[in-house]
């Protein structure tokens, strides 16, 4: 299991390096290598998650280690889907995503779960229904979509600023146009929000089945609601005009900060949610 994850990491690192090189030097050959290694890494990663599932007997999304690994996987899936399903072939997004995928995979390798005993207990109750894995998977994909919103928003802000200051950096000519990143952010926000809504709903359902309560006043739940509200505002704000530009992009950045708070911060505040 460790070995296959190590191979995954190696493939992701190769892909990350080549995406960055392809982005900086506009090199087609590097782009091909990057895509191939990403595909290989993704296949290995999927296999690794599948063996975990079979060996441990529970859905491989529990505790910090598995969450990191699964999050890296969702980001890889998201980027691959964006390559396959959309017309945006953005190297910039790849060189943004793959280093993070690599770091998350690395963290998954070194992270150790302190909650090993507690987890087995909750797993049993968690395993009693399909709602729990659905809840966590939906949320992780929502986070991946919000990461895309964040990346596109940063690209928008950087370029908008350079256009306004009339100083174009070396990156300027390599980033996708304002229209493209604006579209990407709008679509990704819509997808992310839908997933987040479904993720929260399945979480509430699961919770009410388990102990009859929809709401626990848990820090993670509070942060998640704030995040949900913020993206709702973002989507409404974007949809009331054909273009929102800078302010919408800032919302995309702030929204992602909230996502990070929900993901990591809530843990520090003593949430009963056991994983990230």
């Amino acid at each position: 299991m460790k070995l296959i994850l190590l191979m995954t990491l190696a493939a992701y690192v190769v892909a990350a390096v080549h995406y960055v090189v392809a982005f900086m030097h506009k090199r087609r050959s590097s782009e091909r290598v990057a895509f191939m290694s990403l595909a290989a890494g993704f296949a290995l990663h999927t296999a690794s998650l599948a063996t975990d599932w079979i060996e441990d007997g529970h859905y491989p999304l529990f505790g910090l280690r598995e969450t990191f690994s699964f999050l890296a996987w969702t980001l890889a899936v998201t980027y691959l889907l964006s390559l396959v399903l959309t017309r945006y072939r953005t190297l910039a997004l790849g060189s943004f995503t793959l280093p993070i995928v690599s770091i998350l995979t690395f963290m998954a390798m070194v992270a150790r779960d302190k909650t090993a005993i507690a987890s087995s207990e909750i797993t049993r109750s968690a395993g009693s229904t399909w709602l729990f894995p659905l809840h966590t998977t939906l949320l992780l994909f929502a986070y991946a979509a919000f990461f895309v919103v964040f990346a596109a928003s940063v690209m928008y802000l950087v370029q908008e600023r350079e256009l306004r200051n009339k100083t174009f950096s070396a990156f300027f000519h390599r980033l996708p146009s304002l229209m493209t990143v604006n579209d990407i952010a709008t679509h990704a926000a819509g997808i992310g929000f839908t997933l987040l809504t479904l993720g929260v709903l399945t979480g509430m359902l699961w919770s009410s089945e388990r102990d009859g309560r929809l709401w626990h006043n848990d820090p993670k739940e509070i942060f998640a609601s704030l995040t949900w509200l913020l993206y709702l505002v973002l989507i409404l704000y974007r949809s009331t005009a054909s273009w929102r530009g800078r302010r919408a992009a800032w919302l995309g950045v702030i929204g992602f900060a909230l996502v990070l708070c929900t993901f990591f911060g809530a843990r520090l505040l003593g949430s009963y949610h056991v994983f990230g």
Partner: peptide, 19 residues
């Protein structure tokens, strides 16, 4: 990739903004 004449700048800026 980049424009080096004033008349071509409009194209470069247009591509940057509208794709």
């Amino acid at each position: 990739a980049s424009a080096v004449s004033i008349s071509y700048m409009a194209v470069e800026l247009g591509r940057k903004i509208f794709g």
